[in-house]
Design a protein around this nucleic acid. Structure first.
Length: 259
DNA sequence: CTGGGGAAGGGGCCC
DNA sequence: CGGGCCCCTTCCCCA
């Protein structure tokens, strides 16, 4: 069941992004953690994503921004209240607490990225954001005429809700920073899971063997290995697999040329 | 090559 | 509305 129905992906996958960024970030010295810190996230991200920004600018041709905005929403700090390591990031991102204008507006940041609301912009955490009047109806190539669409101008992903967009933008700002290694994450619980890789904590134990896992989903996947009935079956050869990824790999390897 | 573990990302749901 | 959690998914690596 696809959970991505809210989103249409135009460009790179996140992993592809990551590789792209990492390849371009080869210059980053031993101080790499700082390179991923939220304080610089928008700047560095923009630097790394310059090619896509060029593409995204296409959406801003007629006006600084397009999409129809839902009701403007005051936003709180972008999160991480629970994570100590995120406190600095929170501090740095606290600039979005100011009240929003009462009407939907296209907002463009100083770096020419545009968001569909002040909230989204605040998530982006640009210090010199300015509010621009929406002068025309959205000229989106999609179904913007039927329902609101929120764009991430960083990567062109579209969302049908502001909350979803906000959540997504965190994947660019990466406000949660591991105090141990400096790796940055979009959400506090992702950071918590990552910290387990440092502490070795494995709270999810398999009831059938002695194995334990740091991640519940990994335990769930592991449980499939104990199951006699594999969950994922090849439609052609009826071979079963414990994971969809294995089935996909199996399919793409040629067993099911038709599919 | 395949299967499994580890790590991580992201949307949805609930409070 | 936002935060936290759940669940699913993907990618990488290794045996």
């Amino acid at each position: 069941m696809p959970r991505s129905f809210l989103i249409r992906k135009y460009c790179f996958s996140k992993k592809q992004w990551k590789r792209q960024l990492e390849s371009q970030a080869a210059f980053v010295p031993e101080s790499f953690p700082e390179a991923e810190l939220p304080a610089q996230s928008h700047g560095s991200a923009l630097t790394h994503r310059a090619p896509v920004l060029l593409i995204s600018s296409l959406y801003s041709l007629p006006a600084p921004l397009s999409p129809v905005s839902l009701s403007p929403s005051p936003r709180g700090p972008m999160d991480l209240s629970s994570s100590p390591s995120c406190s600095s990031a929170e501090d740095e991102e606290d600039g979005g607490r100011t009240s929003d204008p009462p009407s939907p507006e296209a907002i463009q940041s100083a770096c020419s990225e545009s968001y569909c609301g002040l909230s989204a912009l605040s998530c982006h955490q640009l210090p010199s954001a300015r509010v621009l009047p929406q002068q025309q109806t959205p000229s989106l190539p999609s179904d913007a005429s039927t329902r609101p669409v929120f764009h991430c101008k960083d990567c062109l992903k579209e969302y049908t809700s502001l909350g979803a967009l906000k959540m997504h933008i965190r994947s660019h700002t990466l406000p949660c920073v591991c105090p141990t290694c400096g790796k940055a994450f979009s959400r506090p619980w992702l950071l918590r899971g990552h910290i387990r890789t440092h502490t070795g904590e494995r709270p999810f134990a398999c009831q059938h063997c002695s194995r334990a896992f740091a991640d519940r989903s990994n335990l769930r996947a592991h449980m499939q290995t104990h199951s006699e009935v594999k969950k994922y079956q090849c439609g052609s050869c009826s071979r079963t697999f414990s994971r969809m990824s294995l089935l996909n790999k199996h399919s793409s390897s040629g067993c099911c040329p038709a599919s």
